[in-house]
């Protein structure tokens, strides 16, 4: 009898549910439990994970390589900040910013998603570079190189730090629920059909282009919303925040965490936020560390940290009734990005 064999038994289910409830309570009570600095780091984890969930949609499930999430975060951050400064309510501004990001996503994805996977990688990389230029040039909105200050959102009866945390936690929770839901309904299945058998997809009545484009637009939307939150965490925006460095952090979030799993971005986000905190004064050494971690993750843990339970289970002699893997199961990346 090994621990995993009894996992599907009902006492374990109850224990699991109790654990989840306890975790939820801890998260809700977090502002009272930790100091403001740790709470801020926890906010960053939620924001990074939210952006990473967008990558689960596009890279994990549809098998397209998108390198624009940092750009979409920038669009979301600047657009929300600008709209709030014009007198909009923050939630409305954030959703609008998300829609703007999604619109950009459609414009970039429209040509690229018709073609083999790496065209999207190139178009999105070019887009991310272009966005940095736009942030520098569009001085009336972004403040140019000098940057622009972000107005903090304060929820009634809660201090600034607490408000930021509940905002991040709430958006991360809603995004997680939406992404899990998408994984279970038709869109999630269509995405995986397109990823695993693109040429056969039309014979199943699935348009690869429309499916990929929808995934990309959703991913951009989530990126834009994450950007609105990121602005809240940073409180001051400058163009170089959204450069190549942020993109690389997102790739680590997605691939060290596990791009086929909803839990992946959260694991990856914890690693990235901790690393960023530890290595922030080391400049180029930090980038070297990031690059090596990414390379090692791809070489030795191609499905990410979130795949470890599945791997452990798979290594044992066949369990009687294995727990169904979360949402999509391990991303069979074979044939992805073709």
């Amino acid at each position: 009898m090994t621990p995993f064999a009894v996992f599907s038994g009902s006492p374990w289910r109850i224990a699991g549910a109790a654990g989840a409830l306890a975790a939820a309570l801890v998260l809700l009570a977090l502002p009272g439990l930790v100091n403001p600095y740790l709470l801020f780091q926890a906010c960053l984890v939620m924001v990074t994970a939210t952006a990473g969930l967008g990558l689960v949609l596009i890279m994990g499930w549809s098998g397209q390589i998108a390198l624009s999430q940092a750009g979409f975060l920038g669009v979301g951050a600047y657009a929300t900040t600008y709209l709030v400064a014009q007198g909009w309510a923050w939630p409305l501004a954030a959703v609008t910013a998300g829609l703007i990001a999604a619109l950009f996503g459609v414009l970039i994805g429209l040509p690229a998603t018709r073609l083999r996977g790496f065209y999207l990688a190139i178009a999105t990389l070019a887009f991310a570079e272009l966005m940095i230029r736009v942030f520098v040039e569009a001085t009336p909105i972004t403040g140019g190189i000098a940057g622009t200050a972000v107005e903090a959102v304060v929820l009634p009866g809660i201090d600034v730090d607490g408000s930021r945390w509940y905002l991040c936690l709430g958006v991360a929770a809603v995004t997680t629920a939406v992404v899990i839901r998408i994984g279970r309904v038709g869109l999630g299945r269509r995405l995986r059909v397109v990823r695993d058998a693109e040429i056969a997809a039309p014979s199943l009545g699935v348009s690869p282009m429309r499916t990929k484009l929808l995934a990309f637009a959703l991913s951009a939307f989530i990126g834009g919303i994450a950007g609105a939150l990121y602005a809240q965490c940073l409180s001051y925006l400058t163009p170089e925040i959204f450069d190549m460095g942020l993109l690389i952090e997102f790739l680590i979030v997605a691939f060290l965490g596990g791009v086929g799993y909803v839990t992946g971005p959260f694991l990856g986000a914890v690693v990235v936020v901790v690393l960023r905190d530890l290595l922030q004064d080391l400049g180029s050494w930090q980038r070297l560390g990031y690059g090596l971690i990414l390379a090692l993750a791809i070489a030795f843990l191609p499905r990410g940290l979130a795949s470890l339970p599945d791997r452990l289970r798979a290594r044992r002699p066949a369990p009687p009734a294995p727990e169904p893997p979360p949402v999509s199961g391990p991303a069979d990346l074979t044939g992805a990005a073709r």
Binding site: I65, L333, T334, A337
Partner: peptide
């Protein structure tokens, strides 16, 4: 392994 991993590498 797959194309995806190579591009990321």
């Amino acid at each position: 392994e797959n194309h995806f991993a190579t591009v990321l590498m």
